[in-house]
Design a protein around this nucleic acid. Sequence first.
DNA 1: CGGTAAAATTGGAGCGCTACAAAATCTGGC
DNA 2: GCCAGATTTTGTAGCGCTCCAATTTTACCG
Lengths: 337, 337
Amino acid sequence: MTLNPSRTRRPTIYDVAKSAGVSPSLVSLVLQNPSKVSEKRRAAVRAAISELGYRPSRAATTLASSQTKSIGLVIDDFRNLWFVDLLRGLESALSPHGYQVTLADSRPGENRITEATDGLLAMHVEGLVIAAEPSESMLTGTWVPAVVAGWRDGVPAGASLITNDDDEGGRMAADHLLGLGHTRIGHLSGSGGAAAHRREGFRSRIVEAAVEVRIAGESQGTSEEDGYAAACWILDHHPDTTALFAANDTMALGALAAAKARGLSVPADLSVIGYDNSQLAKSRYLDMSTVDNRSDLVGVDVANTLLARIQDPTLEPERKLIEPALIVRGTTARVPG
Amino acid sequence: MTLNPSRTRRPTIYDVAKSAGVSPSLVSLVLQNPSKVSEKRRAAVRAAISELGYRPSRAATTLASSQTKSIGLVIDDFRNLWFVDLLRGLESALSPHGYQVTLADSRPGENRITEATDGLLAMHVEGLVIAAEPSESMLTGTWVPAVVAGWRDGVPAGASLITNDDDEGGRMAADHLLGLGHTRIGHLSGSGGAAAHRREGFRSRIVEAAVEVRIAGESQGTSEEDGYAAACWILDHHPDTTALFAANDTMALGALAAAKARGLSVPADLSVIGYDNSQLAKSRYLDMSTVDNRSDLVGVDVANTLLARIQDPTLEPERKLIEPALIVRGTTARVPG
DNA sequence: CGGTAAAATTGGAGCGCTACAAAATCTGGC
DNA sequence: GCCAGATTTTGTAGCGCTCCAATTTTACCG
């Protein structure tokens, strides 16, 4: 890598070949399968490459080999941090096979989820991970293996579904609160598919125990504000409530705010448990009880499914649930009194 | 978009041309400059495109036109949410010009920042935004316009620097605390370039006011744990401290934890102010005073600089600071007593 | 209607790389 | 020292698209 003086066009494989005194094919070979090239030429080619500061053109490689060794990940919003663990899981399982992950976020509005997907497909990704609310039509006209991660409603035909078992997670939260002796329990829900399953799992277990459950926010969003509003509703209409399960950690934060506003101390007066085991919940200050959806494991599984379907496209789409894990921290305690 | 029955290869521009009864060139023209094509053919081509479910190959387009209309954004870790606002700013300024943003994260370890950059360069991005601790050598051998956002140490030669004015932000925090009457003030710092500037701005203003400042964590990281440790150190060695300024919101969260552990109530006994105006600080529960580094504005500026340098590559790299803004919320108050 | 300029359309070369068959070179055994 | 077989290297033909010069069609005017 010398100082590449002039603003000349970037070096091509031909430049490298000429400089190393070999054919372009040989350079290509060095790039993809160095062991088939003699020691001498390999060294010469490598020297020429760094001498010229050559970087292979991804576009040309893709075009010529018609494979990109990359899979696309569609997320809805970078602020939803749960995708970070998913990404880590994906990468850990994918990189041993030489695959890379390309991200596209699909903010609502102009850049719809379909556009994000189209962009990825235009880049010839070999597989697609959809970590956003999927739309039925997003996959029409393509045969790229796809798997939906973390959502459950409207999975497009032909796509696999791999997610944590939200029903089971809801049951875990319920068992935890029941085990602490709570009998007046509220739930802050939301409108998405994941929230619905968490709600059903939670409700079913609570009802089994012959305990009443107050649910709010079923058709609302899942932001901190939504959690705050839902918690306020429950605490104002049922002031005897001693425990709240929120559909995610962010909503749980809203619940904490609602408790604080009413002078309730957590967990002495009110237990609060969230879902996701996000950074928030892990934080030393908040120290929040939660359910870990094991997004890392989901990621690994998604990667393996995709890899299998890339190899053998005739494979049927599957459907798999990952066991979540209860994380008990400092916002839940035995029922007061 | 019919049901594309067979797993045939994806349609090319030739398939579209044949189906529409025109030449491939015409199809290409429709794609990039529809107004130069007669109404009739345009409609025919468009019909064929959706009929076949055709999506142009990005690789081929790139190769043929040698321009990608995309710029690359290198971030260090998806968990550092400050890049989200930067991204929004970038996109808002870039999309009117038809440019897209491609992200690459550079986790420490195997996937070094240089690799992330190389990946982006291999994709022929026309410009590079580095929102991570830059390394001197990352740009050798390339002439792609680059700008560093948000860091200040070791900006590679030839790259512009655009960031919020961390010195000024530090001064704002200092003025705020001094204005509230505090005279025993601590600062939780970190080892990065940004932290150093925040520290210097803060210290200079405090010292001007002839007030003593206790600084901890100068050579540590900037996580919540680091903030906790630094806050513990200050509170234990200087129990009379009434205000803490943290180098970022996450560290401020650690400070809150330290205060809680000592039974200090915030802001009655101890004022805490962070930096970044992250989601955390905005949250209703935490309601944290902070300094907003206006990453959105930084993003817009970065985009415009890049655009200008793409158009005219002879432009000199610039250096610009964006004015931050003080955000007063509920964690700072007048000095007790 | 012929003629001309403008508008619309087309053919073909080439972007940088890989795949694959063909050619060149190297082994070692007799 | 020669030859079969293995190993290494090289030509050639695309991959799917854009660009541009050349060609065809259209519109308009006298």
